[in-house]
Simulated scan of single mutants.
Amino acid sequence: MNSDSLVPDQTDHPGEAIAVVAAGAVPWRVAPGDKDKVEVLLIHRPRYDDWSWPKGKIDPGETVPECAAREVDEEIGLKAPLGIPLPAIHYHVPVGLKVVHYWAVNVDGAILVPDGKEVDSVMWCSPERAAGLLSNPGDVAPLEHLADAHARGELKTWPLVIVRHAKAKPRSSWSKAEGDRPLAATGLRQAQAVGRLLQVWKPLRIVSSPWLRCVATIAPYAKASEAKVKLNEALTEHRHGRHPHRTAAAVEGLFDKQRAVALCTHRPALPTVFAQLGKHMGSRLRALLPDADPFLAPGEIVVCHVAHHSKDKVVAVERFRPFDD
Rank of each mutant, 00 (worst) to 15 (best):
K167P: 14
W103P: 13
I111M: 09
V140D: 02
P137N: 04
S310H: 10
L231F: 13
L270Y: 03
E71H: 15
I218D: 00
P159H: 15
L42K: 09
D312P: 05
D120V: 09
R213A: 11
S175M: 12
E237M: 11
S208V: 09
A31K: 12
W28F: 09
V194K: 06
G77F: 08
V119W: 06
A68R: 12
L254S: 07
E233V: 11
D139R: 14
F323R: 10
N136T: 01
E233R: 15
L198T: 12
I111A: 05
A110M: 06
R239T: 11
P142T: 11
E74Q: 14
L143W: 06
P142S: 08
P85Y: 04
R70I: 13
L160H: 07
F323S: 09
G241C: 01
P27F: 09
R47Q: 06
L235V: 05
L41D: 02
R319L: 14
A224K: 15
I218W: 00
S3G: 14
L134D: 00
L41V: 10
H165P: 08
L263V: 06
Y102S: 00
V100M: 02
G153M: 10
L6K: 13
E66S: 12
T236E: 03
I84G: 08
R205N: 04
A166V: 13
H92Q: 07
K98M: 06
D59S: 15
